[in-house]
Design a protein around this nucleic acid. Structure first.
Lengths: 226, 226
DNA sequence: TTGCCTAATCAATCAAGAATTGGTTATATG
DNA sequence: CATATAACCAATTCTTGATTGATTAGGCAA
C-alpha cells in the first residue's frame, strides 16, 4: 500500500505539474506507467481512485481524459425508434405534449395564435389524409414553438421524429380524405382557444383529451385491421 | 421518348415483380441498367420520374431505396445548447421532470426504488461536490428510468446533455463538500418516498419543489458571484 | 499464501485508404 | 441532334490495421 500511495502521489504530482485543462487527454497507460516509473497495475489503481473521485474518466479504445465523463452521445432517432414501440410513443406524447400546451398558453404571442388559427383553417381544407397529417404535424409543432423555449422545441422535435420513425409503415392511402366531422378538428380548436385564453389548465386538458382521442382512434384502427 | 417510356415500363415491371417492401434497396445503377437492358441514362430518367413521384429516394454513396425519404436527423446536442441558455434549461426541467416523476411513481419496480435509496445513501456520503453531483445526476436518471419508457428516457438524456453542455464552465471546486443539511437531501428523499408510495401527485409536487429550490439556489449563487 | 510485476490477450475505438454509388461531364457514334 | 459510353466527381460505406483501456495467466519474491 506504500507503493500504491506512491503511484497515486506520482500521478497527482504529474497532474499538478502539467496543469492541464478539462477534457485534456493524458498518455496511454503503457507509456504513462514508464513515465511515472511505476508498474501498470499500480498506475491503474491510482487512476481508478481518481476516476472514482470524478477527476478523470477513461474509455476503452479512446483513452484517459481529465474532467467529468462527457454525457454519452444521444443515440440517433432511428436507434431510439428501434428500441421503442407505438405504445411507448403514445404514452410519451401523453406525458409531454400537455405540458407543452401549458407552456404555450403561458408564452404564446398573438402572432403564434394567429398562425395556429390559420393552420386550423388550412387543416379543414385538406383534400387528402397526407395533407391533413402535414397540417396536424404543423399545428402540434406550432404549440411547441409557442413555448418560446428552444430546448422544449428540440425535445418535441425528437419526440416527433421518433413517432414518425416508429409508425413508419402505417400510411393511409392517398385517395380518401378526412371527414368534415373528424374528431381532431374540434379538439384542435378547443386547444387553440384555451391557449388564446391563457387558460393553462384548459390548454393542458385539451391536449390531453385530444391525444386520448387519437389513442382511442388508433386502437379502433388496429382492431379493424385484425 | 419511346425509349424512355420503355425504360420506365421495364422499371415498373421489375418493381412489381420483386414485390419489395418499403425501405428496400434496389441494385446500383451500373448493374441495374444491364439487368433491365437499358442504358444508364435512360434508367436514370425513369428513376427520376419515380423519385419525383415519391415512390423511391436516392442518395449519393448510399443507393436507391423504395419508399419516402427518411426524416432528417435531429440537430446535435451542442447545436441545441448553443441556441439555448441556463434559464431555458431550468424552465424545461421544471416542465419535464415532474411528469417523469409522475411516470416513475406509476411504473417503478421495487428494484428501481431500492436503487434510488442506495443512490440517496451514497449521495449523503459524498466527500466532494463533484461526487455529489454525480450521485445527483444518477438519481434523476434513475427516476427517468423508472418510467420504463425508452423514449421518455431518451428525452431526459437529451435534456440532461443540453443542461450539462449549457452550464459547462460552471464547476465547483473540489475541496468543499456539500453540507449535511443541504436542501437537496431532504427533497430527494421526499421524492423517492412519494414514488415508493405510488403517490403520483406527491411525486410530481416533490420534483417540482426540488427543482424550484435548485433554481432559487442558482439565483442566489449568481447574485453572490456578481 | 500473499502481493505484485510482466506479458499476453480481448474488446472497443479510431484512422486511413480502398471500394461503392448516385450525380455530372466529355467524347464518340450513328 | 440524340444518345450511348466512358471517365470523373463527391458522398458514403467497408476494410484493415493500429491504438487503448480492461482482463487474465504465469512467474517471482517476501
Amino acid at each position: 500500500m506504500d507503493e500504491a500511495q506512491g503511484a497515486l502521489t506520482q500521478l497527482r504530482a504529474y497532474l499538478a505539474q502539467q496543469n492541464l485543462n478539462a477534457n485534456a487527454q493524458l498518455p496511454p497507460e503503457r507509456e504513462f506507467c514508464e513515465v511515472l516509473g511505476v508498474s501498470r497495475g499500480e498506475l491503474r489503481k491510482a487512476l481508478a481512485v481518481l476516476e472514482e473521485n470524478g477527476e478523470l474518466w477513461r474509455h476503452v479504445g479512446k483513452g484517459t481524459f481529465v474532467g467529468t465523463r462527457p454525457f454519452e452521445e444521444i443515440t440517433g432517432v432511428s436507434d431510439i425508434a428501434a428500441a421503442s414501440n407505438p405504445r411507448e410513443v403514445m404514452h410519451a406524447r401523453l406525458a409531454i405534449e400537455p405540458v407543452l400546451a401549458r407552456e404555450a398558453a403561458l408564452n404564446a404571442t398573438a402572432a403564434d395564435i394567429a398562425e395556429m388559427r390559420q393552420c386550423l383553417k388550412a387543416s379543414r381544407g385538406a383534400t387528402t389524409w397526407r395533407q391533413y397529417e402535414n397540417h396536424d404535424n404543423r399545428l402540434h409543432r406550432l404549440v411547441a414553438e409557442a413555448s418560446h423555449n428552444t430546448l422544449l422545441i428540440a425535445l418535441f422535435d425528437t419526440l416527433n421524429a421518433v413517432r414518425r420513425a416508429v409508425v413508419w409503415g402505417r400510411l393511409r392511402n392517398n385517395v380518401d380524405r378526412p371527414p368534415a366531422d373528424h374528431h381532431s378538428f374540434r379538439e384542435h380548436e378547443a386547444l387553440v382557444d384555451a391557449i388564446a385564453d391563457r387558460d393553462l389548465a384548459a390548454a393542458t386538458a385539451a391536449m390531453d383529451r385530444h391525444l386520448h382521442a387519437v389513442q382511442a382512434n388508433l386502437l379502433r384502427f388496429r382492431q379493424a385491421a385484425e
